[in-house]
Amino acid sequence: MTEAVLICDDSALARKQLQKQLPAQLATNVEFAKDGLDALTRMRNHKFKVVFLDLTMPEMDGVAVLQHNQKEALCDKIIVVSADIQPAMQDKVHQLGALAFVKKPISNDHLVDILKEHGIHD
Protein backbone atom coordinates (compact mmCIF):
# COMPACT_ATOMS: atom_id res chain seq x y z
CA MET A 1 0.00 0.00 0.00
CA THR A 2 1.34 3.43 -0.90
CA GLU A 3 1.61 6.05 1.77
CA ALA A 4 -0.75 9.02 1.57
CA VAL A 5 0.15 12.65 1.06
CA LEU A 6 -1.03 15.21 3.63
CA ILE A 7 -2.00 18.71 2.56
CA CYS A 8 -2.40 21.15 5.44
CA ASP A 9 -3.84 24.61 4.73
CA ASP A 10 -6.67 26.62 6.29
CA SER A 11 -7.88 27.62 2.83
CA ALA A 12 -10.04 25.14 0.92
CA LEU A 13 -8.92 26.82 -2.30
CA ALA A 14 -5.24 26.38 -1.46
CA ARG A 15 -5.79 22.70 -0.56
CA LYS A 16 -7.56 22.01 -3.86
CA GLN A 17 -5.05 24.03 -5.92
CA LEU A 18 -2.17 22.08 -4.45
CA GLN A 19 -3.83 18.70 -4.98
CA LYS A 20 -4.45 19.64 -8.61
CA GLN A 21 -0.79 20.50 -9.11
CA LEU A 22 0.45 17.16 -7.79
CA PRO A 23 1.59 14.43 -10.18
CA ALA A 24 -1.24 11.90 -10.78
CA GLN A 25 0.35 9.12 -8.67
CA LEU A 26 0.44 11.35 -5.62
CA ALA A 27 -2.85 13.17 -6.20
CA THR A 28 -4.95 10.01 -5.86
CA ASN A 29 -4.04 9.34 -2.24
CA VAL A 30 -4.39 12.65 -0.40
CA GLU A 31 -5.55 13.55 3.09
CA PHE A 32 -6.39 17.12 4.09
CA ALA A 33 -5.89 19.04 7.33
CA LYS A 34 -7.46 22.46 7.91
CA ASP A 35 -4.98 23.75 10.49
CA GLY A 36 -1.77 22.80 12.26
CA LEU A 37 -3.45 20.98 15.12
CA ASP A 38 -5.46 18.86 12.70
CA ALA A 39 -2.25 18.07 10.77
CA LEU A 40 -0.31 17.12 13.90
CA THR A 41 -3.07 14.72 15.01
CA ARG A 42 -3.05 13.05 11.62
CA MET A 43 0.76 12.89 11.54
CA ARG A 44 0.77 11.15 14.92
CA ASN A 45 -1.64 8.51 13.63
CA HIS A 46 -0.26 7.92 10.14
CA LYS A 47 3.04 7.86 8.36
CA PHE A 48 2.80 10.19 5.37
CA LYS A 49 4.93 10.03 2.25
CA VAL A 50 5.14 13.83 2.27
CA VAL A 51 3.42 16.66 4.16
CA PHE A 52 2.66 19.99 2.47
CA LEU A 53 2.41 22.58 5.21
CA ASP A 54 1.06 26.15 5.16
CA LEU A 55 2.52 28.52 7.77
CA THR A 56 -0.02 31.22 8.59
CA MET A 57 -2.98 29.33 10.05
CA PRO A 58 -5.40 29.61 12.98
CA GLU A 59 -5.26 27.14 15.94
CA MET A 60 -1.68 26.10 15.37
CA ASP A 61 0.65 27.59 12.77
CA GLY A 62 3.08 25.74 10.54
CA VAL A 63 6.14 26.71 12.58
CA ALA A 64 4.66 25.02 15.66
CA VAL A 65 3.92 21.89 13.61
CA LEU A 66 7.57 21.80 12.49
CA GLN A 67 8.73 22.19 16.11
CA HIS A 68 6.53 19.30 17.27
CA ASN A 69 7.62 17.22 14.31
CA GLN A 70 11.25 17.76 15.15
CA LYS A 71 10.72 16.56 18.72
CA GLU A 72 8.53 13.59 17.85
CA ALA A 73 10.12 12.61 14.49
CA LEU A 74 6.78 12.09 12.78
CA CYS A 75 7.61 12.78 9.15
CA ASP A 76 10.98 13.44 7.51
CA LYS A 77 9.54 14.97 4.34
CA ILE A 78 7.76 18.25 5.03
CA ILE A 79 7.47 20.84 2.28
CA VAL A 80 6.38 24.29 3.42
CA VAL A 81 3.97 26.06 1.07
CA SER A 82 3.47 29.63 2.20
CA ALA A 83 2.66 33.21 1.37
CA ASP A 84 5.03 34.36 4.13
CA ILE A 85 8.00 34.56 1.81
CA GLN A 86 10.42 36.59 3.97
CA PRO A 87 13.99 35.25 3.75
CA ALA A 88 14.15 35.01 7.57
CA MET A 89 11.07 32.75 7.55
CA GLN A 90 12.56 30.55 4.82
CA ASP A 91 15.73 30.14 6.90
CA LYS A 92 13.70 29.39 10.01
CA VAL A 93 11.67 26.55 8.46
CA HIS A 94 14.81 25.00 7.00
CA GLN A 95 16.38 25.06 10.44
CA LEU A 96 13.28 23.34 11.77
CA GLY A 97 13.81 20.50 9.31
CA ALA A 98 11.60 21.45 6.38
CA LEU A 99 12.81 19.86 3.15
CA ALA A 100 11.88 22.78 0.90
CA PHE A 101 10.04 26.08 0.76
CA VAL A 102 7.48 26.68 -1.98
CA LYS A 103 6.15 30.21 -2.47
CA LYS A 104 2.46 30.82 -3.04
CA PRO A 105 0.98 31.00 -5.61
CA ILE A 106 2.54 27.69 -6.61
CA SER A 107 4.05 27.11 -10.02
CA ASN A 108 3.48 23.56 -11.22
CA ASP A 109 6.97 23.07 -12.75
CA HIS A 110 8.67 24.25 -9.59
CA LEU A 111 6.64 21.87 -7.42
CA VAL A 112 7.42 18.85 -9.64
CA ASP A 113 11.15 19.79 -9.66
CA ILE A 114 11.18 19.85 -5.87
CA LEU A 115 9.40 16.50 -5.62
CA LYS A 116 11.92 14.96 -8.04
CA GLU A 117 14.89 16.54 -6.29
CA HIS A 118 13.91 14.90 -3.01
CA GLY A 119 13.02 11.54 -4.52
CA ILE A 120 9.32 11.85 -3.76
CA HIS A 121 8.37 11.61 -7.42
CA ASP A 122 10.27 10.17 -10.40
Partner: peptide, 26 residues
Protein backbone atom coordinates in the same frame (compact mmCIF):
# COMPACT_ATOMS: atom_id res chain seq x y z
CA UNK B 1 -6.42 33.16 0.14
CA UNK B 2 -5.67 35.86 -2.46
CA UNK B 3 -5.48 38.40 0.37
CA UNK B 4 -3.12 36.11 2.33
CA UNK B 5 -0.76 35.82 -0.62
CA UNK B 6 -0.89 39.58 -1.29
CA UNK B 7 -0.28 40.30 2.40
CA UNK B 8 2.68 37.91 2.38
CA UNK B 9 4.23 39.96 -0.44
CA UNK B 10 3.61 43.21 1.45
CA UNK B 11 5.20 41.79 4.62
CA UNK B 12 8.21 40.59 2.67
CA UNK B 13 8.64 44.05 1.12
CA UNK B 14 8.23 45.69 4.51
CA UNK B 15 10.68 43.28 6.15
CA UNK B 16 13.32 44.00 3.49
CA UNK B 17 12.70 47.74 3.80
CA UNK B 18 12.95 47.69 7.60
CA UNK B 19 15.65 45.00 7.63
CA UNK B 20 13.76 43.13 10.30
CA UNK B 21 11.38 40.23 10.59
CA UNK B 22 7.68 40.89 10.29
CA UNK B 23 5.41 38.48 12.12
CA UNK B 24 2.37 37.85 9.97
CA UNK B 25 -1.10 36.96 11.14
CA UNK B 26 -4.05 35.79 9.04
Amino acid sequence: ELVNVAMGRASDKLARFLQTFVHLRV
